[in-house]
Computed example of a mutant assay.
Amino acid sequence: MKSSLIRRASAAALVLTTTMAPAVAAQPGDTAAPSPIGAQARLLGEKIVPHKLSFRNTTVGGLSGIDRDPCTGEYVMISDDRSVLQPARFYTARIKVDGGGVHSVDFTGTHPFRQPDGAVYPPASAGDGKAVDPEELRVDPRSCRYWWAQEGDRPKSSSDPVIQPSIQFANRDGAYRGQLRLPPNYQITMHERGPRRNKSIEAITFGAGSRVLTSAVEGPLLQDGPEPDLKHGALIRVTQQTRNGAVLGQFAYPLEKIFAESDPSSPWPPDTGVPSILAFPEDPSRYLVLERTWVAGSGFKIRIYDATTRGATEVRNMDSLVGQRVVPMRKKLVADFDDLGLSTVDNTEGMTWGPTLRGGERTLLLVSDDNFADDEVTQIVALGIR
């Protein structure tokens, strides 16, 4: 999300609620049903990274994705700087986290992403169609190389170039290694089909023992109906693929409706979507899904859901979800950041599994994208998941 207005949150007890989705005509459901999902969360701690921290001649910020590197135990974070401040890049860091909280965040390295010819990516303002919008990064569990997603650009004007979204492979120094073939409906077209502007791929995750790469578009495709409003949610598409790009399945995930009315004096409309998805290692059909919403005058609403594709309708061959009888993915609320007692609720966009605690509880680490704005922060949050 590219907004930069003030937000704050209140503290209360963690509440678990359920949102289930029956077969409907392209609308998220509102009735409950039995489900095998239902993770629970508790706050372990948080750490605020100094704003616009200077590190190896770069500005740390815009951190929109995070993953744990199984080869080093460090964490890799992608910046969504579109080569405006410095070339599109990622960072490595040591994050000390345990049941007592987040104790330290120490950056250890940074590299720019490279194009196939070895050049860094140009600024989005270059207008040559080669710019990228980095949003998510995952460490390949097999090779410890990087898979990273960028959501491209649907231009505002027909005279500007279309930049297609992509999921690319990179060496650990950022060198280009190739890209994944995406499903056809992830492509931006000028015929009211495909992802909305700034609502393409922001979420990828490895699952099923690293055999499956799951991705989600941030918002509903143009042909799948309007974005959420105060009365209705919306359906986005979640796609499971092999490492070679073959589509195994595509499902509809139900986004929540907008949680509050927007300040009428603001020129900015509400912004909501899914910036991150994370597979459960032991269940290839089950995911944590991060929903992030911003409303002028109310700030950010950050929620994590436990969701499953089990029982959901296969939609890859549906050109449009409008008017179709679709059973979306079932989901259950795991955490609402307003209820965790955090110092602030900000623009959280990335999440990854951390170390397992004594007793079997998993840690979940999340990072916020400060948009390089003075009224936002880079926040590392650690939750215990059971």
Rank of each mutant, 00 (worst) to 15 (best):
S4V: 12
I6R: 15
A9D: 13
A23H: 11
A26L: 09
P34Y: 14
A41S: 08
G45W: 03
F55Q: 02
G61E: 01
D67V: 02
G73P: 04
D80G: 10
S83N: 08
V84C: 06
R89N: 12
T92M: 01
R94C: 03
I95H: 08
G100H: 14
G100E: 10
S104M: 10
G118A: 06
P122Q: 06
A126F: 14
G127R: 07
K130T: 12
E135Y: 08
E136D: 14
D140M: 01
Y146F: 13
D153R: 15
I163W: 04
S166M: 14
I167S: 05
R177W: 02
R181T: 10
R197V: 01
K199Y: 09
T205F: 07
S215R: 03
S215Y: 03
E218M: 02
P220R: 04
L230C: 02
L230T: 06
K231H: 15
L235C: 10
V238A: 05
Q240W: 11
N244D: 15
G245L: 14
V247R: 07
L248P: 01
F251L: 05
D263T: 11
P270N: 07
V274H: 10
I277G: 00
F280H: 13
Y287G: 07
V289P: 02
V289W: 07
T293E: 15
T293D: 12
A307F: 11
R310A: 15
L321A: 03
L321C: 03
Q324D: 03
L333E: 03
D336I: 10
F337E: 01
S343Y: 07
D346T: 14
M351D: 06
S368R: 02
F372Y: 15
F372S: 10
A373I: 07
E376I: 05
I380E: 02
R386M: 07
